[in-house]
Each structure stands twice: as C-alpha cells, then as structure tokens.
Design a protein around this nucleic acid. Structure first.
Lengths: 192, 192, 192, 192
DNA sequence: GATGAATGAGTCTTCATTCAT
DNA sequence: GATGAATGAAGACTCATTCAT
C-alpha cells in the first residue's frame, strides 16, 4: 500500500493550506499535524523540520507552475523568440495573479535555479529545453556559451519573480498589470 | 542633550553588528540590549519591536549605499544615459561585493521604492533626481509618463537587487563578476 | 529587597520537595515552577537546567549534614581518634536513616570531595579541620602527607555513603543498623 | 536452532557498544535496534524496556569481571587471607583501569549483592566460595555468622566499587594508582 | 526616562511503546 | 515470531513583551 506516501502528502497538503492562510512563520508544526490528522512524531518521520517541508512545497509549486507554463507555450509556439519567452512569463504571472496566496507561500524563498536544473536533467522533451535550444540557436545568441544563456534566463527570471512578488503581494510599486508592459519591454529588448 | 538619540544609535549599532554576525532571526532582543549596554525595557522606548529595528537598519543601509552611488556617479557624469545608470548600479554591486555581511542584513527584506520616495521628496538636488530627469528627457523616454519611468527604474533595480543577493550570498547561479555583463547588457538594452 | 534570592529559594524548596516525592528523574521543570508558583522562564533565570538545580540541592544537603555532624561531634569530643570519626559518621547515618527521602535525593550523585574542599577553604575553625589536624598529628598518621590523609578520609566516606544508600534506600544487603558494626569496625581498624 | 538467543545477543552487543560510546542515557532504542539490524518491535520481544537491557549488561559485566578475578586468584593462591582478597580486588581494578568505558557502562548502577548471590547458588567450586569459607575459617572470622562475613565483603566491595568509579571515571580525588594503597590498607586492616 | 526581573504562551523535538500486517 | 510505521505524551527551553520600581 502507499499509505506511507499518502501520509507525506497529507502533511504537505495541510502545510500548504496553513502557509497560505497564516503564513509559514505563524504556522506551527502543531497546526500542521493537527490539520493532517497525524501524530506529531509522524511529521518528523517525513520531514526534518519546518524549513524542510516549506522547501518541498515551494519546489513543488514552482516546478508545477513552470511546467504548465512551458507546456502551454509549447502548444502556442510563435516563430519569434521573445514572444515565446513572454508567453511563458505571462502564464506564470497570470497564475500567481489568480492565486496570490500560493505566491505568498513561495514568498522570496525560491530561486529558479533548482527548477531549471531538474528540468534540464529530465530526458522528456519539455519546452524549457526548446527555449534554451531556441535561445542558443537564435541569431542573436548563437555566439554565446550555454552558461551565458542560462545566466541571461536566470537574470530575467529573477526580475520577473521579484517584481511579481512585490506587485502582487505588496502592491509595490504598482499593480501587476501596469508592470507587465515594463517587464515585457525589458525582456523583448534583452532577447533581441 | 542628544542622550536620547545616542541610545537609539547604540541600539542600532548593536543590532547591525549582531545581525551581521548571527543573522536577524537568531539575534534576540536580549543580545541587542546587552551589547548596547542598555536595559531591556529601554529597547521598547525606541523601537516598537524587532522588525521595526531591522527595518530602520535596512532603510539606513540602502539609503546610504544609494546616495553614495548617486553622488559618485554625479562626479563622473557620462553623456550616455545607460552608462550613468550602469555606473550607479556598479557602485552598489561593488559595495555589497566588498561587504556581503551588510547585504545579508538587508537580505530580501527590502524594496527600493521607499528609498526612491524619500529621495524624491527631499529638496536637495541629489543625482537621483537628475537621473529621473535625464531619463525623462532622453530621446527614448521623452514620451513616457513619470510613473512609467519610475517603474522601469524599479524593475531594473529589483533585478539588480535580486541577482546581487543570489550571486553574492548564495553564489547562485554564478559569481557576481560573471553576472555583471548579463545585468549590464539587460540595462543597456532596456534604456536604449 | 532580597526578592531575588527568595525566588531562588522557592525554586530550591519546591524542587527538594518534588525530588523527594517523585524522584528527580520524574520531576519536570513544569512541576517545579508550578509548585514554586513561579513562571517557567523564571526557572531559567536562576538555574541553567534541571541538573544544575539538583546539584545545588545535593550540595546544600551534604554540606548541611556534614557541618551538623562535625559540629555535634565537636561538642562531644573523645580523646580517641577513631571514636571521633565514628561519631561523625554515625550522626550522618542517623540523619539519613530518619530522613531517607533526603538521601534518595542525594542519590548517588554526590562525591564528598567538593564539600571537603569548600570546608577546608573556610577560615572558621570547623571540626573537619580538627579531624584532619588530629589525623595528621595522631601517632599512626604523623608520617603521612596531608593528601594521603585526605584520601583515606575520602575512601572511608565513599564506603559509608555507598553502603548507606544501598542499605537505607535499596535495603541491600541488610538494614543499616546491621551494617553499622561492620562499617565501624572497618573505620576503627583503618584508623588505628 | 538458537536463532532466538542469537538475536538477544545481537541486541546486547549493540547496546554494550553504544552505551560505551554515547552513554546509556543518550542511547535510544532506535540506535540499538539499528545497530543490531533488528526491527524495533523485536527489541520488546527480548527485553521489557531500556532499563532491563542495561541491567542485563551490567550484570554480565560484573559477573564476568568477578569470575575472572576469582579464577585468576585461584591460580595464585596466597596463604594469607588479606592477600587473596587484595589479589581479587586488584584484578578488578586493573580490568576497569584498562577498560574504563566498560566501567562507565556499569556506572553506579550496580550492587555486588546480586553477583554474590548468584555465585553462591552455583554449585561449581568457584573461588568466591573458597574465600568465604576461608574468611569464616580464618582465626579472626571464625566466630562470625556467615551473613556477618558476607556483609563485611559487601562493605569492602562497595568501597572498592565506589572509589574505583570516582577515581577512574571522574578522576576524584586522585588517580586510581594513588588510591590503591589506601584501599588495600583498609582491606588489610579490616581482615586482620 | 530607565530599569531588569518576571512572565508564560509557544515551539520544537525526542523516544519508548504499540499494533496491524 | 518479526516488522517498522505510527503514535502522542512528555519534555526542555526560548524570548518578545510587560510593569512595578
């Protein structure tokens, strides 16, 4: 039976729910196990501490959002490089715009690097690979090293993530819809 | 006498020192007042809580770094808009590169918005105003609203801050010197 | 005001009472502060942990019992060395025989060495000094070094303490009154 | 097959090893079963609780050390009673001096009484019986009851055990080699 | 204004023991 | 007999905040 994995999932679900409602800092292990209807000790069978379950959660969220975005863009491929990237970014922004609580769980705890790395290791032909391939093969990028391309993606992603969080959660410096044109302009210019 | 202000400063200094050494989370009010040689209750005469002293500290740091950067750039004005902005950014990066502990205090707690706002209210003719003026008056920006220009600066600053932190503190995805060309290219293209 | 010292004493008293009733291992900090009518944090203002309050308690008990025994013997001095030592030992045994709970607190946690050392440092002319002086000056001991004499006292004290505990608390191998002649015979022979 | 007895032994061996390395208090059942490569529940098939396995261990150690000492002395019999006893005691002390970790497992948890009792019940003509017989038949002891003789042995053993532990483990009040003459003098005088 | 003793709710963590498989 | 996942009571300890002096 997968009872074991099921308990782990119950804990993740409970933590996700509580982190959304009360924030990770104000959520106690007690809260989590109570909501998961699991004994306290059980928590420590699956996670080392609170940070560990938060990391798992954040990774899962980012992974899922990123995959969905790439998938979706794969279905609506444009011939223009920048448009494709913006499509992905827009999908991510829209997701978090509609679900700001999940964004508040991810908070600022996350770097895209781990997701990128995992994605790149996977053998399935995910769009992320296409993007990097496209980036590298596009006329403007063709004489860059792979790591230079990855760093460029990373920088743009950090920008998007950071502005996303500030605009959606803290409403700084403006609402996200007003920030979008600015972001997309920077992306468009950077990839041309 | 400014005895009062002096105590406040002692508390700020102690907190700054301890936040650098141990991190804000692991520093207790006890640690701070002990190092500041002040009674525990006194802390609450000057700051509402721990978050409040951290905010003060972060604001002071960012303010200072930003002013220095602008001042320094004011002394080496280039006629090119992008070069001037990159000059400021480079100054900030170099500062934190040499003093990563201070960066670790600022952590991810900060947005540039408050600093911008304070700066813009001040009546002294700091370069920041010049930059915004220059931005608005530059051929490429001349048909943008002021808030659009501020948002562009904000987006680029968030990008710089976020990458700065990741590269210097977490060594992700590469060391800061290798990230600089990427950042500067994005800035240069965005401001042209 | 000695409010501070008073709280410390309330904690010691409560711990002493509970250690007697339930044993040190089964007594929690919670129990202690509850009985002392003191907040939990207050405990940690005065003692580092549970072991620390137990050590204080044990030291106080041993110190008191030892002083009383010496004092009492000082009032009934015999001209015979062995008789004087046995007088002290008997006083200690009788004390613990009448108050076995206190002995159970002391348990096996104690060595006489610390008490001896403290006593020897004090300048008041306690009988312990007389004993050691008498021991050293007695014909049989006169050609021993001071440390050799102390070691002999130590060995006999360990024997008494150990047998005392076993006989009174664990009723092994016989009741204490039947063990007394054996102990005294060993002491008498050792000091002759 | 003795598979059963073998598991019990594996548990004992693991516990012995861990108690030596980390102390009994800091060793968990988890540690023990993990090292014994046995499931956690299995532990409770062989021992009632942690105290129970420690008791078994301590008994085994004391039993073995005592038997070896008696055996060895049996091979080097002296005609003098005290010398024989001291021979046994010295063997025990030397054993623990060379293997203080084992002594630290025995700790202060032990009384010699159980070992004595088991030994006396066994029908094989171990030296312990000879000693007691010799003690009882020696001129000085001949008019004592058997229990009086046993109590004397017990008292001396407690003294040796207690001083042994203090000197070897806690280095109090002196190293064991300096304590030996004191112990042997007391024994010698007590048995004359 | 300044003090620092006192508070006590809150948190994480451990671990002996059980029991369904 | 053997397993090991699950339990949850129990425990130690922290620390921001208050308030009488």
């Amino acid at each position: 039976m997968q009872k074991k994995e099921l308990k782990r999932q119950r804990l993740l679900d409970a933590a996700y729910d509580l982190f959304q409602k009360k924030g990770a800092a104000s959520t106690t292990i007690d809260d989590i196990v109570k909501q998961a209807k699991v004994a306290k000790g059980t928590f420590y069978l699956y996670f080392h501490d609170k940070k560990s379950i938060l990391d798992s959660l954040v990774f899962n969220i980012c992974h899922k959002v990123f995959r969905d975005a790439c998938q979706n863009m794969d279905d609506h491929r444009a011939d223009n490089l920048a448009d494709n990237v913006i499509h992905v970014v827009d999908h991510i922004i829209e997701y978090f715009k509609c679900d700001p609580l999940t964004l508040s769980v991810v908070c600022r705890n996350f770097g895209w690097k781990p997701v990128l790395e995992i994605e790149l290791q996977n053998s399935d032909d995910l769009f992320l690979k296409h993007i990097l391939l496209a980036l590298k093969n596009s006329p403007e990028m063709k004489d860059r090293t792979e790591s230079a391309v990855i760093n460029l993606v990373y920088v743009l992603m950090e920008m998007v993530g950071s502005v996303c969080y500030a605009a959606i959660i803290e409403h700084e410096p403006d609402n996200i819809d007003n920030m979008k044109p600015v972001l997309y302009e920077v992306i468009r210019k950077s990839l041309s």
